[in-house]
Amino acid sequence: MYKAIKHADEYYEINQLYNLLSELKNNLLECDGILEHFSIEAIQVIQSCRSQELSANQYIQWIQLYKILPDSLKNIMICLLYEYQYQIEHNPSKLINFYKKELTNPSQIRLAMCAIKHESNIVHNHFHAFELARKWLKKSKQMKNLTGMFDCLHWLCNLSSECEQNEFFKYLNEINLFLSQYKEHISKDRIQIFHVNLAGCYERLKMYDKAIEWYTIYLNETTSHQLPALLFMFHCQFLAYGKFWISDIKYINILDSSDALQACYQYFDYLSSGKESIFLEQYIMKELLPYLKTLHPKFQKIFHYQLQTLIKKTHNYKQLLLFETRLHI
């Protein structure tokens, strides 16, 4: 049973995985040992996370208990714990500590993807992440693990645009060829995430028209959590044309995003309604700056650019210095 669970997890056979977990839980209910009790609790948490995120209380409990689980359950729990810390708290020191304990030498592809994301986005060691992705692409091909191959190619596109730009089109061509053959085997959500990240790749390569094209494709594919991509698209439009537009987007949902992101979007709403430069500058400094401290540096970059543009009209250069000082730019 545990071997079958490990196989289903490693090959992204999600429905089979959850069926096996339910079967294992029913079997364990007939036992009364302490390890069986914790395994049942772990399975219940894993099942609940299919429809909702790990909670803070669950994180606190399982960060102390995950090591006692059988390896197949432990690997699933490690991914959940890392994703909670990455998505919710995003505390780099905790992420680094957990990475050193459990992800330095990943034993399977799902753990390897956590390690690749960590090396790229937390410690910014893009070259190491790139080599990890190449290593696991080779392993995934040997295992005929299609979703693993897609994930590795996806990240090789991302990472090559950061650190090996001459390799970008090689991996882009490879993933396009892969999708032409195996697209029906890859989940819709995974392909959508690839599309938005592809836009980011083109943005890093300063190919802004292509970035705008792929942000638009992504925004028309999804109706949830659109604001990050929308804000990044606005930035590309400004860099390329000195203005922004949303006429190519069929539907925009801002209500499922955080207050911080909604406040960022509000700036562009004010900008499109013709608010004066001094008003927009004050909005960035008084309303947005506290939020920007909590957001990814990419959002800070957007409003650093906007403030630089506004100050050409307001001449309040001290505001720019204050903005850069507060955000350590």
Rank of each mutant, 00 (worst) to 15 (best):
M1D: 12
H7M: 08
Y11H: 14
Y12C: 05
Y12Q: 04
Y12H: 09
I14R: 12
Q16D: 10
K25R: 13
N27M: 08
N27E: 13
L28D: 02
L28G: 01
L28K: 04
L28F: 03
D32Q: 07
L35M: 08
L35Q: 09
S39C: 09
Q47F: 04
S51P: 01
A56I: 07
N57D: 15
W62D: 00
I63Y: 05
I63F: 06
Q64I: 07
L65D: 05
Y66A: 04
Y66T: 03
L69S: 03
I76G: 01
M77W: 03
L81M: 08
Y82P: 02
Y82K: 07
E83S: 14
E83K: 11
Y86L: 09
N91V: 09
I96V: 08
Y99A: 04
E102P: 00
T104R: 11
L111D: 01
A112T: 02
K117M: 10
S120V: 03
H124T: 09
H128T: 11
L132S: 05
A133T: 02
A133Y: 01
K139C: 03
K141D: 07
K144L: 07
K144D: 11
C152V: 04
H154L: 05
C157S: 07
C163A: 06
E164H: 15
N166S: 13
I175P: 01
H185Y: 12
R190F: 12
I191Q: 15
Q192N: 15
N197H: 14
L198I: 06
E203N: 11
M207K: 14
K210E: 08
W214S: 05
W214R: 07
L231P: 00
F232Y: 15
F232D: 01
M233G: 02
F234T: 02
F238P: 01
K243Q: 14
K243L: 09
K250C: 11
K250Y: 14
L255Q: 15
F268K: 05
D269F: 09
S273D: 14
G274W: 09
K275S: 13
F279G: 00
L280Q: 01
K286C: 12
L288I: 08
Y291K: 10
Y291N: 10
Y291V: 03
Y291H: 15
L292G: 01
T294A: 10
K301R: 14
F303C: 05
H304C: 08
Y305N: 15
L307F: 10
I311N: 00
K312W: 06
K318I: 07
Q319E: 12
L320K: 10
E324P: 03
L327E: 03
I329Y: 13
I329P: 01
